[in-house]
Design a binder for these strands. Structure first.
Lengths: 193, 193
DNA sequence: CGCTTGACGAGACTATCGGTCTCGGTAACA
DNA sequence: TGTTACCGAGACCGATAGTCTCGTCAAGCG
């Protein structure tokens, strides 16, 4: 058996970085334009001017490409406000979350991506880490507030985290009611009453 | 032109009621067993012992069959508690909603149905009336409470309704945290703090 | 009783899509 | 200059929603 920890140096043609960019850009654009409608691999490849195999050579599935397209350019950084005030932190988090969901192309793309995830268990699993980071940010803000005595001992942090993201996703996916900054502030205050 | 308000009497073989029942029963059972996985028309027809055309003769799409299967047997009746106390009404609504989501086969079937709706715009549209009735029940409870002076003028009913169902759907679809009666009571109380 | 009508089960067929496979060509490196 | 691995293109496979056709069968009418 050969030493797999020390593979032989790479030879041959290298990965085409322009193709990678074209694929991610095309995927994000199609994801945003679709706004709910499915995005096919054929369409992405054609829009990027590449063959399907180039896609599958570097990503294991369509979902992986789509998620990569979103996280590549979209605000990867999770805001972690720490103003010293629970109310201010939660307001800031809500405003940042709601506003980010309205920006193009990442907002509409995220909406489509969730719908893709509903039919693709693999993608759903990949998205868990994406959403877990956001949940952790809310939890951290709440727990800092608790340590400062701004959150009563009777308040359940798990419940509050799910209230925060439940409301957000509900309005985001249904799109029947606004997710603007004013709503964000009123919502954050409602959670802390 | 003939009088379309007075169509000629029906002749020929009549609709097979047993087939209708078999289709709806098979669809609900498959929907519940799938618990997320897609349910194909072929599978429904085979399980019901009917041809695909019998399905498409009476329903316009797969989604219509699935929704019909759920609403046919599942608790169609929306609870409308009116105890005279906002807190008691909202608790009752939350307990009924959360408990119903855990019952078989309607609970798992609803979860699968939502995932089907994510890929079927037609079904998503059909489900709007289904969910609207539930939203209206919560709204009615809140507005009765407001008339009794149990809800401050600063509380936004639209926000509260979305908080209620946002939290429910979030936990129901993700399944990461309990939706039991105890949680329902604590949640209802949290909304009314 | 027998004819007309329309529903019935069965399954072939079309179109779409995710994913695999193969082909001739080409860029990078030794 | 030869080897290697990536490239675009597209044929191919399997699954699935929905349509179409076929021979059959039940309900009513004359």
């Amino acid at each position: 058996m050969h030493d797999s920890n020390e593979p032989r140096p790479h030879t041959g043609r290298r990965r085409n970085e322009a193709a990678r960019r074209a694929i991610l850009d095309a995927a994000l654009e199609l994801l945003a334009d679709a706004d709910g409608a499915p995005v096919s691999v054929e369409t992405i490849a054609r829009a990027a001017g590449v063959g399907k195999q180039t896609l599958y050579r570097w990503w294991p599935s369509k979902g992986a490409v789509l998620l990569d397209a979103l996280t590549d350019r979209a605000a990867q950084d999770v805001p972690a406000p720490d103003t010293g005030s629970l109310r201010e932190d939660l307001r800031a988090l809500a405003v940042a979350t709601f506003e980010a969901s309205r920006r193009r192309p990442s907002g509409p793309a995220l909406r489509t991506l969730v719908q893709e995830a509903a039919r693709d268990a693999h993608l759903a699993e990949l998205m868990r880490t994406f959403t877990q980071a956001r949940r952790d940010a809310v939890r951290a803000v709440l727990e800092r507030g608790r340590e400062r005595g701004e959150l009563g001992a009777d308040r359940d942090v798990d419940l509050l985290v799910d209230q925060f993201y439940g409301f957000f996703w509900y309005r985001f996916l249904l799109g029947h009611a606004p997710l603007d900054a004013d709503t964000a502030v009123r919502f954050a205050d409602a959670l802390l009453r």
